[in-house]
C-alpha cells in the first residue's frame, strides 16, 4: 500500500519509513505539516500517518482540512501525549485511529493494515462468515460447521471484532480498545484469557484435535489473527 507519513521528529520518521519499506509498502515522508497537507491533498494514498504536534498546521488541522476537502483516506494520528482525552479529540476530528508514542512497530503495522483493509462503510452486515464460522448479529448466535457455539457477551464481542478483520494481525492493545473499551494496560492477561476461551469453545464445537489447523492463530510478540492470512 502507499503510505504518507507526516512526522517532524527525524528519528521517528525514519524509523516508520524504514519499517514500512521493509514490509513492502511505498512510503512518502513529509517533515512539516505544510508539506504533508500538500501531499495529502494532491496525491493518492491508501493510509496517512500523521504526528499530532507538527510545525505549521498540526495533525488535527491537517485532518480537518482533508475531511473538508472530501478526502476520506484513513488517517492514523500519532501523539506523544497519548492520553485518552486526546484520543477522543482526535477521533472526533475525523481520525480513524490513534496511537500514543512510544509504540511498538508491530502495533503501528497492525493498525495500518486494519485501516487499509477496513471494509468500506457499507450497510451493516447482519451475517458474518469466516472459514466455517458463522455469526448472526441479529440473533446473537454463533455456529461453527453448523454446530451452535455458546459465547458470553464479551466473548461474542471479541469474536465479532475478529471476524470483521479476518486474517489481520490484531494486537492486544487493539483488542483492549475495541472490545473492552480499556485505554490502559491491565496487569492481568485479560485478552489472552478471553481469546483462549473463545478458541476453546470454537474448537469444542467441531471436536478439533491437535492436528486441526487453528482458527485463531497466536502471533508471538504481535497478537492474534483469525483465519488464514489472505
Amino acid at each position: 500500500m502507499r503510505v504518507l507519513v507526516i512526522e517532524d521528529d527525524r528519528a521517528t520518521g525514519d524509523y516508520i519509513q524504514k519499517g514500512l519499506l521493509e514490509a513492502g509498502h511505498v512510503v512518502d515522508l513529509a517533515r512539516t505539516g505544510k508539506d504533508g497537507l500538500f501531499l495529502a491533498l494532491n496525491e493518492q494514498f491508501d493510509v496517512i500517518v500523521t504526528d499530532r504536534m507538527l510545525p505549521g498546521p498540526d495533525g488535527l488541522a491537517i485532518l480537518r482540512a482533508l475531511r473538508t476537502s472530501g478526502i476520506r483516506t484513513p488517517v492514523l494520528v500519532l501523539t506523544a501525549l497519548g492520553d485518552v482525552d486526546h484520543r477522543v479529540e482526535g477521533l472526533d476530528a475525523g481520525a480513524d485511529d490513534y496511537l500514543g508514542k512510544p509504540f511498538a512497530f508491530s502495533e503501528l503495522r497492525a493498525r495500518l493494515d486494519a485501516l487499509y483493509r477496513r471494509p468500506a462503510a457499507k450497510a451493516e452486515a447482519t451475517l458474518l462468515r469466516v472459514a466455517d464460522v458463522e455469526m448472526d448479529l441479529l440473533k446473537r448466535t454463533v455456529k461453527r460447521a453448523g454446530k451452535p457455539v455458546e459465547l458470553l457477551p464479551t466473548e461474542f464481542r471479541l469474536l465479532e471484532y475478529m471476524m470483521r478483520h479476518p486474517g489481520q494481525v490484531l494486537t492486544r492493545t487493539m483488542l483492549l480498545e475495541q472490545v473492552w473499551d480499556f485505554n490502559f494496560d491491565p496487569n492481568t492477561n485479560v485478552v489472552d484469557v478471553h481469546v483462549s476461551r473463545v478458541r476453546r469453545k470454537l474448537d469444542q464445537a467441531i471436536g478439533a484435535t491437535e492436528a486441526t489447523p487453528p482458527l485463531i492463530r497466536t502471533l508471538r510478540g504481535a497478537g492474534y489473527a483469525l483465519g488464514q492470512d489472505d
Binding site: D83, V84, L152, P153, T154, T188, N189, V190, V193, R197
Partner: peptide
C-alpha cells in the same frame, strides 16, 4: 476528565468488568 461527564450505566459497566475478570 478524559471525556465530558455523561450519564453512564454503572450497573452495565460493573457487569462487563465482572464478566471480563471472572474469566481471568
Amino acid at each position: 476528565r478524559t471525556t465530558a461527564p455523561t450519564l453512564l450505566d454503572l450497573s452495565a459497566l460493573a457487569t462487563g468488568m465482572a464478566e471480563t475478570f471472572t474469566a481471568v
